[in-house]
């Protein structure tokens, strides 16, 4: 069986796995350099990273690259197909789609960055508390169970119904909807190392809980958090785009990708490029994060 053989080969190639959650001490710098080495050798992960790099550079350098201003209307050229004058065509106001995509990407990438940062900060804190302090665990997990009892998108929509539509409120809704997934994973990781001897040892030394959590527990549960953050980055962009598409997130004329697809929907018969290209951009970026996330998972936890 070729499957078995290649598995063995991979096993020879890599160094003995040092699983983050089980390692007896805080991971050493050599652990992370091994992870980086494995990651750089992973072709699909690098493909994902490349996609993200291209999009990031394109969006950051939008003012230099974009051939037209995002709101420059030109009714003579309205709904012009992709071509030499307008690389990806124009929309119903004659605005250049390529330029709008570049600027819109800033919004989408920033949305992902902010939601992932805030959600992971809150989720990891709650997860660590739930995993380390038995007394608080039941309360935190009960609230998380209630949030998980609803499909994430429905929960986000219900929250937006309260806060009102708009990009900021959509981000708040997404943050609340994804926090439980961080809490669950972090809590489970903390539980798995809380009773380890080295934690007991530092506790016996009389070191404060705060220090134990920050210096001895958190560094040992980083792997699953990093993987989750990477995948959630793409997931948040996808969710924000879906909310904008439903008219609950970014509002046109903001060139957010989901909002652009929404506007293009009405002109699908005449100008397919209005909705197909922004959607393609969303898919490529999310694909980039998923490829990178898969690679990170393999690099951090080689089996």
């Amino acid at each position: 069986m070729s499957g078995n053989l290649s598995q063995l080969e991979v096993g020879h190639e890599t160094h003995p796995p040092l699983r983050a959650a089980e390692s007896p001490v805080t991971p050493s710098p050599s652990y992370w350099s091994q992870v980086a080495k494995r990651l750089f050798r992973n072709k699909t992960a690098m493909a994902g990273a490349l996609i993200l790099l291209i999009f990031t550079i394109g969006c950051v350098c939008a003012p230099i690259i974009a051939p037209y201003p995002i709101d420059q209307m030109n009714f003579k050229d309205r709904m012009m197909g992709p071509g030499a004058k307008h690389l990806l065509g124009t929309d119903d106001f004659g605005r250049d789609i390529f330029s709008r995509l570049l600027y819109g990407g800033r919004i989408s990438l920033l949305t992902g960055l902010i939601t992932v940062t805030v959600a992971s900060a809150i989720g990891v804190t709650l997860g660590v508390i739930a995993g380390y302090y038995r007394r608080l665990e039941i309360y935190i997990m009960q609230v998380m169970d209630i949030l998980l009892a609803l499909p994430a998108l429905l929960l986000a929509i219900a929250i937006i119904a309260v806060l009102g539509p708009g990009l900021t409120n959509a981000m708040i809704a997404i943050v609340i909807a994804v926090i439980p997934s961080y809490v669950r994973i972090v809590r489970a990781s903390v539980l798995s190392i809380r009773e380890k001897e080295y934690i007991e040892a530092v506790r016996a030394l009389g070191i404060k809980d705060r220090v134990i959590l920050a210096k001895h527990i958190l560094p040992n549960i980083l792997s699953p958090i990093i993987v989750l953050m990477t995948v959630q980055f793409g997931g948040s962009i996808l969710a924000a785009a879906a909310l904008s598409f439903l008219g609950l997130g970014a509002q046109p004329p903001i060139p957010e990708w989901g909002a652009m697809v929404y506007v293009g929907k009405a002109f699908l018969g005449q100008a397919w490029w209005m909705s197909i290209f922004p959607g393609l951009a969303i898919m490529l970026v999310v694909l980039g994060f998923n490829l990178l996330g898969d690679g990170l998972r393999d690099a951090l936890d080689p089996k």
């Binding site: 996808l238 197909i276 959607g279 969303i282 898919m283 694909l287 998923n290 898969d294």
Partner: peptide, 18 residues
Amino acid sequence: SLIGISAPGFWIALFLIW
């Protein structure tokens, strides 16, 4: 399979409709 997971549902829908 990664493409399927990464593509927004509303975009797949519009693509199929188109």
